[in-house]
Structure formats: structure tokens, C-alpha cells
Design a binder for these strands. Structure first.
Lengths: 239, 239
DNA sequence: CGAGGTCTTGAAGACGATCAACAAACGTGG
DNA sequence: CCACGTTTGTTGATCGTCTTCAAGACCTCG
């Protein structure tokens, strides 16, 4: 159940068997959510954190006029709201972007876990820091790149992240999101997103049909996106 | 030396005397940086983390064409690169936006600290999560609000954060940043920032002369910004 | 007083938003 | 299997915001 999470954590630093066992034991599930359902509500104070097993979720903040901004996209193996363990009151909602399967860990168990296994605690902490690192890149992409470069950056990021958990290979992967959802991720209009997609296709950088996405020219795409994977911390490095 | 940091941490949950002492003991300094100096370089692997004592710093990511995006602004009492302790390789630079005074803590000491004091570790963790929470709000503001609303949101945020550490009172505070720096923070052009400033003045929401900023009508400003302080986690709540 | 930085303003144009219409794909129930 | 409705993708016209570039005013500091 937690293979993808382990894969992600241990890419950085291997866990000791007791750590693995305790982590495993803290989780219950699975539970299902349908696309569109909110798993965690803005303003609520969850008493458990959610590990995504299957599907895609997004953190969304909603404006007065109903407009939405998706501030992150989570893939299987991600703890979608580990931070709720410490933050307590959610400043955003977590929504299932596709049908999902999740497992959950009660906060008291997590607190116990972090007290008993400082090394595991640091690895989990690290993963919440990765969220922040991705936020920063998204900010830079949104603020200082055009719509096409921003989309290209997102594609590069998703490819690497999905690769880590075994959901992408040879620059090809499934990303079953509508262009409307991409618009909410990129903070742009649907029309702009569509134009950006056409643009990437016209340049021969990606083949993208339905939810299947194939990167045709990684180097050119990364160049266009000014993509530097440093922020994803994919190197092994003990914490 | 670390009063402001303590003030911020203990707003959430009081520290035990040994925790306070150990935290204090892990820090050395102060060291000075002049405005414009980089304290931490993108791509480097610092062996110590930096606590800001005085002045303002920003995390900046630089584009190929030289354009910059400032992804966060730090104020006295903030650990500007606590995350480097776990992230190891910096995905951005930390730059002094004004003249600064800082103290630093060697990473081995921090690791020791987090192993010996899980409760303190959680509080520090919480503070890195606040960074991420602010990033999310910035993303939402940048993606789904106009330049004026975005600037208004930033002002609201800075006011509350500065208040926590005693650097703002009655909605008035010093923010010695140029409009060019604001442009890099907001991801907009200088001209747009200037127009947004004029706009806020014209609406009678802020008095802003030089580096002195006074909020004239908090409610209207917060309304315009769609500002909801939940994400700053200002309530007491044990971790 | 002069020099350099910062703020301010205007004009022209690029880019993206909004709106509307239509086409294609998909799923459902008959 | 077809008819239907819904969702998603595509395109064009129009409009507004923001960018870029440039110039001048203001301020501060040496």
C-alpha cells in the first residue's frame, strides 16, 4: 500500500525496518473519493492526514467570485495534507481531481511516530519542504514566464515526479486533467491554456492526446521552461 | 538576540526552558550583510542555517534573461533558510533586501536539537510549513487577483507578520523596499506596481510615504485583498 | 551643487481574458 | 446500436490589463 511513498522517501535516504513498519502501521484504509469530491475542507481542523494511493488531488483556494487557484497537484505516494498535522486549521481545501484511493494516519499516531523516530520525522519534514520548493518554482513560472513556458515547466515537473513513483517512463505518462483544471493550476484562462497546448504541439515538443502525454523533445522542452530539477531534490542524501 | 524568534514560536506554543536554552546555544553571531548582498547562493549546499535578526531578506530565483522573482520576504525573527538543513542543495538564493544582521546555526547542531527536543522540532517544522502556506496565498493572489488586490494582500500579510514580532503597531510599519523590489515580489512590472500603489492611495486605503506605510482602512483593504489570516496560524495551539 | 537612484507618467503594443459559438469525444439510457 | 445530453477541446472577435520603453521630476547623499 505504501510502496510509492517508500520509493519517494528512500530515494533520498533509506529507512530502517522499524521505521518502515511503524509508518505502515500508522496508516489505515484504503478509502475512495470520486473526482470533484473535497477530501479536506478549507477552514476545517482534520484529526488525520491523508496519503494518496491512486489518482490525483489538488490543493485549491477559492475566491469570492468562485474562481479557483490550484496551488499544488499531488500524485500517488504523496502525503496530501501531512502539514495539517501541525498547521491544524486548513487554509485551503484538498480536492480529488480524479477518482482517488487514499489511506489515512491519525494525528496522535503521527506525533508519536515523529517523537520515536527523529530520522523518519526529518524525512517527512523534508517532504513537506518539497511542497514549498515546488510552490516557489510555480511562483517564478507564473510571475516571470509566459503561459507556454509555464505549462512546459509544469510538464517537466510532473514527468520527473511521476517517474520517481513509477508512473512515467521514457517521458510518457498519463495526466487525466481537463484543460479547465490546467487553467486553475496555471492561473490562466481556458483559452490561454488551449493556445499554450497547441503551441507545444506545433513546436513538436510534446505529443498530447486525451490524457496521454509524451514528451517528444525533453531538452528543448526543459530549455523553453528554464527547468532546473534541483528543487525536486532527487539525489540521495542522508538526513 | 532571539527574542523575536521566540515571540513567533511561542505565539503558537510555549517552549520549555531547556528548549529555549538549547535553541539559544545553537546560534552564533551576529553577522552583517549589506543590502543587495547574497547570503545564500542558488545551487550551494550551506552547512548552517540563518536566523534574521534585523532587516529584510528575500528568496529570489533568477531567470535566464536576468528577470527575478522574489518568492518570499523574511522579517526579523524568521529562519530564512532553515529548510537548507534538510534540502541540502539550494534551489534559490537568499538576498539581503536591506542591510541585515543575522545569526547562524550549524546544521549538525540543528540535527542534534531536533533529535533531542521533538517538541521544539515540531515547532520549527511548523514554521517551515508557514512558508509554504504563504507561498500558496501568493500563488492564489498572483494567479487569480489583479495587481491591486495582490498588492493589498501583501500589505495585509506584512502587517500581521510584523505585528507578531513587534515591528508594526496600529496598522503602521516600515517597509523599506523599492517599487522595483515590489515588482519582483509581485511578478509584475514596475509601472504596474506604481499604478497599484497610486490606486490604493486614491481609494484612501493606505498612506504610504517613502518606507513608511500606514493602513488607513484595514477592513476595506482586507476586503479588497480577500485577505483571510487563517494561513498565518496566529492562534495558540499546542503541537 | 551634481550624481545616482527612485518615483511618476505617457504612448504603443503584446499578451491574456472574456465571451460566444461550434466541434469532437464520451457516457448513458432507451 | 443509436439518440441524446454533457463535458471537453478548439477557434475567433473583442476588450482590458499589463508590459515595454522612454522621459522627466523628485529626492538623497556625497
Amino acid at each position: 500500500m505504501i510502496e510509492r511513498l517508500l520509493r519517494k522517501l528512500e530515494l533520498r535516504d533509506p529507512l530502517h525496518p522499524p521505521e518502515r513498519a511503524a509508518l505502515q502501521a500508522s496508516l489505515v484504509g484504503p478509502v475512495r473519493f470520486a473526482a470533484g469530491e473535497a477530501m479536506v475542507l478549507q477552514g476545517s481542523s482534520p484529526d488525520r492526514s491523508t496519503l494518496l494511493l491512486e489518482g490525483l488531488t489538488g490543493r485549491v483556494v477559492t475566491m469570492h467570485d468562485g474562481a479557483q487557484q490550484i496551488t499544488s497537484v499531488h500524485i500517488p505516494g504523496d502525503f496530501v495534507d501531512l502539514h495539517s498535522f501541525l498547521l491544524r486549521r486548513m487554509d485551503h481545501s484538498v480536492v480529488a481531481l480524479t477518482d482517488c484511493r487514499v489511506a489515512t494516519a491519525a494525528h496522535p499516531k503521527l506525533r508519536d511516530l515523529t517523537s520515536r523516530f527523529p530520522h523518519l520525522a526529518r524525512l517527512l519534514w523534508l517532504n513537506t519542504l518539497l511542497d514549498a520548493a515546488m510552490h516557489r518554482q510555480w511562483l517564478a513560472a507564473m510571475g516571470r514566464r509566459g503561459a507556454v513556458g509555464q505549462l512546459a515547466h509544469l510538464i517537466c515537473e510532473m514527468n520527473l515526479r511521476l517517474e520517481v513513483v513509477g508512473l512515467a517512463a521514457d517521458g510518457a505518462f498519463d495526466l487525466p486533467l481537463s484543460q479547465a483544471q490546467f487553467a486553475d493550476i496555471l492561473g490562466r484562462s481556458r483559452a490561454t491554456v488551449n493556445a499554450a497546448v497547441q503551441d507545444l504541439r506545433a513546436r513538436g515538443l510534446v505529443a498530447w492526446r486525451g490524457s496521454r502525454l509524451e514528451i517528444a523533445d525533453w531538452d528543448a522542452l526543459a530549455e523553453l521552461a528554464e527547468f532546473n530539477p534541483t528543487y525536486l531534490q532527487l539525489e540521495a542524501m542522508p538526513v
